[in-house]
Simulated scan of single mutants.
Amino acid sequence: MSDTRHSKVLIIGSGPAGYTAGVYAARAMLEPVLVQGLEPGGQLTTTTEVENWPGDTEVQGPDLMVRMEGHARAMGCDIVGDIITSLDLATRPFVAQSDSGTVYTADAVILATGARAKWLGLPSEEKFKGFGVSACATCDGFFYRGQEIVVIGGGNTAVEEALFLTNFASKVTLIHRRDELRAEKILIDRLMKNPKIEPLWFHQLEEVVGEDTPMGVTGIRVKHVTTGEITEIPAKGVFVAIGHAPANELVKDTLETHHGGYVVTKPGTTETSIPGVFAAGDLTDHKYRQAVTSAGMGCMAALEAERWLSEQDLDSGKDTTEPLGYGAPASAAE
């Protein structure tokens, strides 16, 4: 028989948004339970040096997440190494099923499941992640000052990252499998006028080339999409910029979403389309996607959950299970 655990606040996800929500919810005496998920610590655990976290000139991404986890625990947040596999938001208390078999029920839920960079799925790409292969120019561009780097992609993300990387790199080669970019016209215009950027049309990444000792990228091999001809390009950094995908599997059919699946929140808040359910961090943020903004939203979610709970009739002595009457909303237009 599975165990059932009830809490006032269930936090799903363990990146900067989740752990910050845990700190604030615990300080508010809400006795939160935080379920870490498949990747405890989130995207920062795959990052090396972080130089844009306030208060740290430089910190290793995994170390920062260990500190944030420790802070949440010290405040009284109950952190559980489990994975939520389904979430029922149609009744209250909300019900979450887990991989371990434990059933988590909660009066309020904070979703902080984040987003995942889209990758090409190449073995060499996986091998050099964090050692020359990145999906975040604002995180890692600084480390390639004076170096030649490449950007893979053809949409807004790729063009914006290529432009940003010219602040550091001596040359940026943009690899695109077509001869026309899918970005906004103003961005394309800026890119084409930038002397540091050289587009390479009709090519796709075939392999990342590098060394094992020390681990690092030395170049790439690209293939012409029609002729199949292979070309080698020297590079110290490879930025895969084919977009991000929000980790919305638990709520994509329940909560309102937009921009390709990011959860919609009411302007200026972390409130979702279902009362008592809050969303923070990269799950909702298709624009900034920074650790510091995620942490800020985690704080907001906890404070808003506390306020919302104080307004509810949640007498623990009676059955609070009730149908909420919410169907799966249509996603907003992208």
Score class of each variant (00 low, 15 high):
Tyr24Pro: 01
Ser331Arg: 13
Gly216Pro: 03
Arg178Val: 07
Asn167Lys: 15
Phe202Gln: 14
Glu249Leu: 06
Thr138Val: 15
Leu10Tyr: 05
Thr45Ser: 11
Ala291Glu: 04
Ala21Tyr: 11
Thr57Gln: 15
Phe202Ile: 03
Asp3Asn: 14
Thr113Pro: 02
Tyr262Val: 03
Lys236Leu: 13
Leu205His: 05
Phe168Thr: 07
Gly228Asn: 10
Glu229Arg: 14
Phe142Trp: 15
Gly216Glu: 12
Ala28Pro: 00
His6Tyr: 12
Phe164Pro: 10
Asp140Pro: 05
Ala332Pro: 01
Arg27Ile: 07
His203Tyr: 14
Thr166Gln: 05
Val238Phe: 06
Ser98Gly: 09
Arg92Trp: 04
Glu161Pro: 05
Leu165Ile: 08
Gly37Val: 01
Ser316Ile: 02
Ile175Asp: 04
Tyr19Gly: 00
Val225Arg: 13
Lys193Gln: 14
Leu87Phe: 10
Pro32Ser: 02
Pro32Val: 00
Val159Asn: 08
Thr138Cys: 07
Val80Leu: 09
Ala115Leu: 09
Ala245Phe: 07
Ala26Ile: 01
Cys139Asn: 11
Val217Gln: 09
Phe94Gln: 08
Ser331Pro: 15
Val264Ala: 06
Trp119Arg: 15
Leu34Val: 07
Phe94Thr: 02
Leu250Cys: 02
Gly13Ala: 06
Lys287Ile: 14
Gly155His: 09
Leu303Ala: 00
Gly55Ile: 09
Thr102Ser: 10
Glu271Thr: 02
Ser331Glu: 10
Ile83Pro: 06
Ala25Cys: 08
Thr105Tyr: 03
Val151Lys: 07
Leu314Met: 02
Ala235Val: 10
